[in-house]
Nucleic acid binder design. Structure first.
Lengths: 363, 363
DNA sequence: TCCTACCTATCGATATATTCGATTTTCCCA
DNA sequence: TGGGAAAATCGAATATATCGATAGGTAGGA
C-alpha cells in the first residue's frame, strides 16, 4: 500500500543513465541489466509521474521539455542520495557523525581556519560544530559533554576528568590606544602608575572561574565578556589591557594600538591545551583533529628563555583567572619529555624581544 | 541486478515517519500499512546502509548518532523528491517547464521585479529565464524563439510573425549633467544649439535595427550598447541624451542630472508591447505572465493629451530607431477599443507637465 | 527501394521483494 | 509480578522486477 506516485531511486538512476549513455540499450549495458528492464523501468517512471520524459519516435530517445526539467531534479536527488550513502559508509566504518569543538578566543584564528579546512578535506562527511568561548567556559563545555574537544588554557581542579595535551602558546602583550596616557610614557611603566588606569579584563560566565578575580594589576578594571569588545574598547582609548599578539598585530603595525612596556615585562605567554573528557573514547575524526592541533607544536625548538614571567603581583594581567593555583605542579608544569614550547612563529610582535612561554606562575 | 546498497525512497519515508510519529506502530497507522512492514522496511534500510539507525532496546525507538545524521539526509532527499513530484504534477497538468522572458532595458525595473515576484508565488515549479536587451534585440530573441515573450518597443516589419499587445509607456526625458553647457541655458534650448553638442544614443547589435540610425538630433553622437553606460556617461557630463524618467528620477531629485527643455518638448513617451511569436501556443504560465504585463495598463484613464510629440525632425531622439515607418497605421496606431494609454503612474518627472504617450509619429 | 544494423516495446515465465495476519518476545508501568 | 503496548519474526499470499525471446520501428547504405 505504498504511495503509488512515488518514484524509486532506481528509476531515477535508470533515467539518468539512459540520458548519459544515449539510449536504453547502452544504459542497459552500463548498468549490467537487460534492455527490457530499462524500457520497463522508464515506462513505469513516466506512468508514475504521469509525464512523458522521452520521445522514442526517433532512433535515439530524446528528452521532452518535461523530461529536461525533471532530469535536473532527478540528478539533484541522485546527488543527495550519493552524499547520504557516502555518509552512511563512513558511519558504518566507525567515523563519527559530528565533531564539536570549542576553542578559546585566544587561539589563533588563522591556525584554526587552516585546521578546519584540512578537516573538511579529510572528513567531508563529518559535520563540524564549532564554538568559541573565553577561559573557563571552554573547559566547562567539554566537562558538560557539549563539545568533544576544546582548546583551552589551564583550568585547575579538572585533572581527574579532563585529559590535557599541550598544543602551543599564546603570547599576550599589554596594549593601549596611542592617545592613552600610558602610551605617552617613555621607558618602563612602573606598577604604581599602571595601577592608576582602568584595565580591561576578559572574563566569562563559567562556574569554573567564579570568584577567581585576582591576577589583575589595576585598581579599577572593566570586565568584558568577549575579546572583540575588549579590542574595540582598547582602540577607543578607554583603558589598557593584555591582548593576544596575533589578534592585535595588525593594529600595532598600523599604529592604532601601541605596546606598553611595563615593569612586569612587555609580553608573556601561557600554554594552551587540547582537552577532552578522559572517560569518552574519541572517534577517528576527533582523534585526527586533536592530532592536528597537537602538531602545531611539533616543529618547535626550545625558545630562548628570556624570562618575562610576570612578577607575582602581576599574576596574569588581563586574564582574570589564568592564575594557576598550583594544584599539581610537577606534572602540569611542563609537558615532560617533549621539546620545549615555542611562541607562535612568524608573528613575533615588534618590540617584543622574544616572548617566552611561562608554563607556571605562582602567586 | 540493481545496486544492492541503494536505499529506496519508500524506505527513507518510512524512516522519517517512524521518527515523526514516534514509533513503528504509529508510523504504520499513519502510513496505512501494517506494523510488520515498517519493521521489515527499517531493518532493510539499516542493512543496506550497513548502519544501525535506531536503538530498539527501549520501549520506543531512539535515534543513534548515525541515525540522526542520516535522518537529516533522508529528509533532504525526501524534500527534493517532493519538489520533483510537484513539478511533475504541474507538467502533467500542462504547465510549461520554463518561461523565458526578454525585457527592454527601458522597462521599469520596479514593475518587473514585482511581476516576477508574483510569478514565483503563482508558479513555484516553473523556471524563469530572464534577459534584458535593448531595442531590436528584444524582438530578435523572440523571433529566434530564444525567448517566449518579450517586452519591447515597436519594431517595423515583424507584424506577420509577432503578436503584440500594448502594455504601458516609457517616458523619456532629455537630460544632462548639471555642469554641462546645455544645462546652463535658461528657457527653451533651440534645436540649433542642441545640435552642437554630443548626443549619447542607445543602440544595439540586432539585425532588425541595422542601418536605421536616423531620428537623432545632434551632429555628433555616441552610440552606447547599454543603458548603464549611457547613464554613467551622462552623469560624467560628456554629452546629453534621452533617458527613461524612472531610471533617472533619483538623479534628477538629487541634482546629479538636470532635465533639458528643448524645443521639441521636455519629455515624450513611447509605447511598450508584450510580444510573442504568433505561431506558438503559450502555456498557462506564459499566458499568466503576459496578462500581468498587460494589467499594468489596466487601471489607466486616458491621459491628458498635452501633445509633446517631437517634431518630425526630432524623430525619436536618443533612441536610434524607434522611428515607426508607418507600415500599418490603422491597426498599430493604438490598441483599438482599449482605454487610452497612461504614462507610468507615480513617477511623473518633475518639470514634465504630463508626459503624453505618442502612439505614432511619422517622418 | 530494399536490406541490414540497431534500437525499443512487449510478452510469458520466473525470480525476487513486499505485504499480510498471526505469533512471539521485549519492555515498561502499575 | 502481571498486563498492555510495541517491535521482531514467520509462513503464506501477493506484487513487482527481471530474464530471454520476439516483434516492430528507424536510419543509413547498397
Amino acid at each position: 500500500m505504498r504511495d503509488p506516485g512515488l518514484p524509486s531511486l532506481d528509476q531515477l538512476r535508470v533515467f539518468i543513465a539512459v540520458i548519459d549513455h544515449g539510449g536504453f540499450a547502452h544504459a542497459a549495458r552500463a548498468l549490467h541489466r537487460t534492455q527490457s528492464v530499462i524500457s520497463y523501468t522508464i515506462a513505469n517512471l513516466e506512468e508514475q509521474l504521469n509525464v512523458a520524459l522521452l520521445d522514442r519516435s526517433k532512433r535515439k530517445p530524446v528528452l521532452t521539455e518535461a523530461g529536461k526539467a525533471l532530469l535536473a531534479d532527478a540528478r539533484a536527488v541522485s546527488l543527495k542520495v550519493d552524499g547520504m550513502r557516502a555518509r552512511a559508509k563512513a558511519l558504518s566504518a566507525g567515523l563519527e557523525a559530528e565533531v564539536s569543538v570549542v576553542v578559546d578566543v585566544m587561539f589563533s584564528t588563522c591556525k584554526l581556519v587552516r585546521i578546519l579546512h584540512a578537516f573538511q578535506q579529510e572528513f567531508p562527511t563529518v559535520a563540524m560544530r564549532l564554538r568559541t568561548e573565553a577561559l573557563g567556559a571552554v573547559t566547562q563545555l567539554v566537562l558538560e559533554r557539549e563539545c568533544h574537544i576544546g582548546i583551552s588554557g589551564w583550568m585547575p581542579g579538572t585533572q581527574d576528568i579532563v585529559e590535557r595535551q599541550s598544543c602551543g602558546y599564546v603570547t599576550m602583550v599589554p596594549v593601549a590606544a596611542p592617545d592613552h596616557p600610558l602610551a605617552q610614557i617613555e621607558g618602563v611603566i612602573p606598577s604604581a602608575v599602571l595601577r592608576e588606569h582602568t584595565q580591561l579584563v576578559l572574563t566569562d560566565r563559567s562556574t569554573l572561574t567564579k570568584g577567581q578575580d585576582f591576577g589583575v594589576l589595576a585598581l579599577r578594571d572593566w570586565r568584558l565578556g568577549d575579546l572583540s569588545s575588549k579590542h574595540a574598547l582598547l582602540r577607543s582609548g578607554i583603558g589598557w589591557g593584555n591582548m593576544p599578539v596575533e589578534f592585535v598585530q595588525w593594529d600595532l603595525d598600523a599604529g592604532r594600538l601601541v605596546q606598553l612596556h611595563i615593569s612586569e615585562g612587555s609580553a608573556f605567554s601561557f600554554p594552551l591545551y587540547v582537552i577532552r573528557r578522559g572517560d569518552e573514547e574519541p572517534g577517528p575524526a576527533t582523534r585526527w583533529l586533536m592530532q592536528q592541533f597537537l602538531d602545531l607544536e611539533q616543529p618547535a625548538v626550545p625558545p630562548p628563555n628570556h624570562d618575562m614571567r610576570p612578577s607575582p603581583v602581576a599574576g596574569d594581567p588581563g586574564v582574570s583567572h589564568m592564575h594557576h593555583r598550583l594544584s599539581d605542579p610537577p606534572r602540569e608544569a611542563k609537558p615532560s619529555g617533549k621539546p620545549g614550547p615555542l611562541p607562535p612563529q612568524g608573528a613575533s610582535p615588534p618590540g617584543v624581544a622574544a616572548p617566552a612561554p611561562i608554563s607556571l606562575r605562582r602567586r
